[in-house]
């Protein structure tokens, strides 16, 4: 497994080196590989689809401009998410809107069936839908610093070391912040579950 990751990293590093040498096709391949992971991260952070699209494009353009600074010791994904994270925080700070603004819920619902089991029973589908809704709400209500650490771990499957490098914090901070974020998310779950059962 480790060997496979290493081979993937090597192939990716080769693409980055080619892109550094001015090979636009190589950079386009990297964009194709990471456009959706970067987009879903910035979308969950910013909360606005149009803004997330702009941020995704900005992230890749900034990455291209910063390519000469990339060193093979850094994983390209971590480096890219670092750029995306900084760009997103800049936007949130500039617009003084650290609060999460819900994005188009209809669009989420439209995409939801792809993520579910191929043929869930109606009860299961309803329960899944309710739980996903609760998680969406919980995520919206979490502070940005807890939301980002949860997304990088649970959605992007990053190790603590990668999260630390992406966010520019220590691994110990990742460990404690992630635990707090999970507790907070679960508390929101319980809160919303209570609301739902009251309804």
């Amino acid at each position: 497994m480790e060997c496979m990751i290493s081979r993937t990293d090597d192939a990716e590093a080769e693409l980055v080196v080619r892109a550094q040498a001015g090979d636009h096709r190589a950079f386009a391949l990297l964009v194709g590989r990471y456009q959706d992971p970067v987009f879903r991260f910035v979308l969950r952070m910013s909360g606005i689809r149009d803004e997330a699209m702009d941020l995704t494009q900005d992230t890749f353009l900034k990455a291209y401009r910063a390519l000469p600074a990339w060193r093979p010791e850094a994983r390209f994904r971590t480096w890219l998410f670092q750029i995306a994270h900084n760009a997103t925080l800049d936007v949130l700070r500039r617009r003084q809107r650290v609060e999460f603004v819900p994005y188009d819920e209809d669009a989420q619902d439209a995409a939801a069936p792809e993520a579910r089991d191929p043929a869930p029973t109606p009860e299961q589908a309803l329960a899944d839908r309710q739980r996903i809704g609760m998680l969406e709400r919980a995520l919206r209500e979490l502070p940005a610093e807890q939301r980002e650490v949860l997304l990088l771990r649970e959605v992007e499957d990053m190790s603590y070391a990668e999260i630390a490098a992406t966010l520019g914090i220590g691994e110990g901070t990742v460990k404690s912040r992630l635990a707090r974020a999970r507790v907070a998310a679960l508390a929101h779950y319980r809160g919303h579950a209570g609301e739902n059962s009251d309804e």
Partner: peptide, 17 residues
């Protein structure tokens, strides 16, 4: 894992290229 996987919906690579 069940969260809807948001996608950009177009080929950004082509635009960037």
């Amino acid at each position: 894992e069940r969260l809807p996987a948001a996608t950009l919906g177009f080929d950004l690579a082509g635009v960037i290229e």
